[in-house]
Design a protein around this nucleic acid. Structure first.
Lengths: 244, 244, 244, 244
DNA sequence: GATGAATGAGGGTTCATTCAT
DNA sequence: TATGAATGAACCCTCATTCAT
């Protein structure tokens, strides 16, 4: 693309001025290489893209929001689309960060599932995340890899972690599952039952309340464990209930 | 121009159908009243909007695709948004038409659920419908009522029909459900477990196979009935299995 | 121009229907020849053009206002511009009609001048007429003949009549004028002093009141007669004042 | 493109003028701040607007005539209307600049009035100014404030100056006037008697000759002074005539 | 002869991208 | 390197004019 690479000649002639800047910035990064500036741009892009969607967002808005010049953006990102993709990549990281921590400290299965389901439900249906997903989905027709990559590195990874978690539960004899992947999907869907679709289609204009999510999740965990829980799990739960 | 006008010769050979068409097109239709032209425009709009999304679609594209002039479109639809909404309304009608018929002829509960789940799964994950949903979702940021209306008149109505169906199953003593609405959502999600999200994010580039859907649906029905099925249902199924 | 001439063949085949129409309209006028329809179109055009100006007026508006079809208008007038010109021609006739009658029944010179000045002032500064003049002036750059013809057949003719009137006053020895044409112009301007310009530039948003016009006219007549009135006139006026 | 940028070579040879230009263009001007470019746009707009009127002028025409891109115009002016208003403001300034200077160096009343009348007549009936006035008048239907502002800051200010001038003449006992404002209007009209209307309606295709204007003005001054001049003025003029 | 649905060039305006400074 | 003024293609929409009915 039309990126302007560092002009060697120009740099060469300004050695005396360069030193000062070099000193200040401990080595000036090559064009499009400064991670601080990059982050700054992405941050501006986030505010604008998430707020307005891909098409309605203007590069001028992003310029203003990011506090950098138009030209600079085009040094770091070849065009609007690439900037958007970079943002989505970042966004994905933020959304799914720490989402699965609760699975690491598992003891009581039912309560772990509930905790996990609640985190999942809160995250996925939060206004911010719904909007991001809408933006990605809306762009997925024109840039299918974008949605694919988002899914793969986001929901897919979480899914895999949850599959692993279910594996240990199976090993512990608490659940009996033939198709673990399918069961993992089923659990996820049960935790979002009715909510995700309503949010994404903006049938709901606000995110569901914590109470509502808890209600859905508890019911979902019930269904899941009635379907997949073993007698051993039931026994343990009876024991636990008695001792309490 | 590329207009597809009723072929006079063909019409002449089908005298029995002619009456209907004559009624529709008796003389020249009033401005914005010709259903043939309207359909033609909607069809062009479908191709462009579904392919590119609301914002990226241009009225010029639609003009070209529909084979009518710009001005004509604006006689039939006040502006781009109204054309889009009309299209979405049509799409919704097409998508959800007949989708719930299987619930009317219910006898064996499990098989009815499987049949329904399969229809649901096939429809919702079909390439065409996924694309339409993406378009609606993508536009939902700028036109929230659009997504809301789509959901309300589409998935919502289906959901209500299914709730009614579950009601009769409860009356027949085959299932025992506290929160019928939630259970209905759960069933729907179970039938699409893993599939819908993968399709909508274009992680899958093609619709799932019939076999895959059947697998998911059968498992979903199992989970659902293990959670909500009564002893009476189990007895009936045992009896049925023996007699077979 | 694309005018559709009467189609002989078609007419020939409908002789039986034609008779009825023929009877009703006592001979159907040739295309573009029916003066009633022409007047109807002009009337519609007047309402729209005067209200919105040339450019902002749409042929659809005129169609609606006139109660005739688009095609018909184009049979009577080759295009928007010609229709506009025809309208202006008509308008001119209406505006200046009867404006000079007061000059025919002259006895007392001063009072005749006042009467005439008042009629002139009222007409020329009336909202309707100001708007018409604005429209003509605005179009005069693009269609200079339009303004020229308007002036020639309107103000110019009035001017000539007034020149004749002044001629008789001269003959009667009441005024003494070297350049009668110039004096006529001067009188006209005096009667509109300050008013016309303010109206035409919409510095005044409403037409001046009758009182204001009378004030201006009386002062104007004073100036005019001080400049051009003879001793004889003064004597007559003194006599008249005494007898009253 | 056809942009007329300051010619670097030429600038280099004129070191004494350079300072001014440097001040104007020191470094690259901010968006919409370059007075050279602004002037360039206004100049293009002048040609197109004055030639075609507000409505008929297209931004494309102006773009072409000004030699700048469409986008640039919209950096300097928010929309067509603002550009037009800016142009009219400029025109007004140019037209009325220095028009009333002659009133400041008044000695002989009659000759001052004649001089002033001539300047007035020449200006107001010049082809350029007539066209500008036509443009303003034509637009006054749709943008009444435009015409109002033009009148207020142009003719109105001149009128006020002339009223002041008449005031001193009254103080000097040379004229006796009841309604000074009205008298001022009368004088202006007398100086343009017959000319303004004929020009503005393009009944005259060319501006009146200097001789014609002088004739009209001298007659107008005569009428004015016969109506308002005092015995003192007459005496002074007799004295002056004798001494000459 | 009359109709008005259809046409499509052209309207004003926006904005992703470039490139001189 | 960074800047942001300038570009011009493309946007949605209007409307004078045509021509099949």
């Amino acid at each position: 693309m039309g990126q302007t690479l560092p002009d060697a000649k120009t740099l060469g002639t300004k050695t005396e001025d360069c030193d000062l800047l070099e000193t200040l910035r401990r080595g000036r990064p090559a064009a499009g290489q400064d991670p601080v500036k990059r982050a700054q741009i992405i941050e501006g892009a986030r505010r604008v893209f998430i707020d307005k969607g891909f098409e309605a967002a203007s590069m001028n808005d992003i310029t203003r929001e990011a506090g950098v010049s138009k030209g600079t953006i085009y040094v770091y990102f070849a065009n609007k689309e690439e900037l958007f993709e970079a943002l989505i990549e970042e966004e994905r990281g933020t959304i799914f960060k720490n989402m699965y921590d609760v699975l690491d400290h598992a003891d009581d299965l039912r309560e772990t599932l509930v905790k996990f389901g609640k985190v999942l439900g809160m995250k996925i249906t939060s206004a911010k995340v719904i909007q991001a997903q809408r933006t990605v989905i809306g762009a997925s027709d024109r840039i299918p890899e974008l949605g694919a990559r988002f899914y793969e590195r986001g929901p897919k990874r979480g899914h895999d972690k949850f599959v692993t978690f279910l594996g240990t539960a199976i090993e512990r004899g608490l659940v009996e599952i033939e198709d673990v992947h399918l069961a993992a999907y089923q659990f996820t869907e049960l935790c979002l039952a009715g909510l995700f679709r309503q949010c994404i289609f903006s049938y709901r204009s606000k995110a569901p309340s914590q109470a509502e999510i808890e209600h859905v999740v508890r019911s979902g965990v019930n269904v899941f464990l009635k379907a997949y829980g073993t007698e051993k799990l039931a026994a343990e739960e009876r024991a636990h209930a008695t001792s309490a």
